[in-house]
């Protein structure tokens, strides 16, 4: 157990990236080890390369410097054990909710089985969306759409879940609720999570550790251990430790105009 906890699962060593040979670096010198089933959040000012970092872990982007590896194997192409939750749900408007959830199978292999459909139904049930399974995405609220986005990422039962500001398009109340829903799913189906956000409180509320990044080129400012007890709830927000941690992070990326 402890062995597993301490070994790096996702590992970044001296990772840097530029989008063209002469272009400035977007991120540089990123060193980060993520343990198996750990929940790591990344916060930083906009444009600091958080999304670039996520794309490098997913294998959609190969870093121009350093190396990203998963389980000691360098990432050179998109991996099967990675699920991505995109900003703004990214559902296909021409498919029903159920077909959207099944889309990764349909798209990767061309078809799916009755067993796959059963799994999709179980995921829909877990997300409380059973009665919306045959609706079109635009008939759902933003929060429900993003829940579909999450369970779609879970369909292939990935070990790593990459989330790119998944709740940024949602209103504050929905956002908090879906955050707790995510924690519940994560508790029942442990995954290694890399969670990009620009909400400091969201990062503190959800994660085990927080990577704080600087302005572009994004570097590691700090890696903060979130020692708040789990399971977390709305009560967590009222604890003094929560305030301390958010203050600490706010100090790093304080911008006078932007109330956090």
């Amino acid at each position: 157990m402890d062995q597993a906890k301490n070994s790096a699962y996702v590992s970044m060593k001296g990772v840097g990236h530029q989008y063209a040979p002469q272009a400035p670096l977007v991120v540089k010198d990123i060193d980060l080890d993520i343990h198996r089933h750990e929940f790591v959040a990344v916060v930083g000012p906009s444009g600091c390369g958080k999304s670039t970092l996520l794309r490098m872990v997913s294998g959609l982007l190969i870093p121009s410097q350093g190396e990203v590896s998963v389980f000691n194997r360098p990432v050179t192409e998109p991996r099967d054990d990675v699920g991505i939750v995109f900003q703004k749900a990214n559902l296909l408007p021409w498919l029903t909710v159920r077909k959207n959830v099944l889309f990764p199978l349909k798209h990767k292999y061309g078809s799916y089985s009755a067993a796959d459909e059963k799994r999709a139904n179980e995921l829909l049930e877990m997300a409380g969306l059973t009665q919306f399974a045959d609706k079109m995405p635009d008939e759902l609220s933003g929060g429900m759409q993003q829940r579909v986005g999450i369970i779609r990422a879970l369909l292939l039962n990935p070990d790593i879940l990459l989330m790119d500001e998944p709740f940024s398009a949602l209103d504050a109340l929905t956002r908090e609720q879906i955050g707790f829903d995510l924690l519940k799913i994560w508790r029942e189906h442990p995954k290694t999570v890399l969670f990009i956000t620009h909400s400091i409180s969201e990062a503190v509320l959800l994660s085990d550790r927080i990577l704080v990044m600087s302005k572009r080129p994004g570097t590691v400012l700090d890696l903060i251990e979130v020692d708040l007890p789990r399971p977390r709830s709305s009560k967590t927000i009222n604890s003094p430790r929560f305030a301390e941690l958010t203050d600490l992070i706010r100090g790093y990326i304080y911008e006078p105009d932007v109330p956090a």
Binding site: R55, S58, G59, L60, E77, P78, D80, V82, I84, F86, Q87, K88, N90, L92, F103, P104, H107, K108
Partner: peptide, 10 residues
């Protein structure tokens, strides 16, 4: 993002 979804599934 839709294209990335496709690419991430190879």
């Amino acid at each position: 993002e839709m294209i990335e979804l496709s690419q991430s599934l190879r």
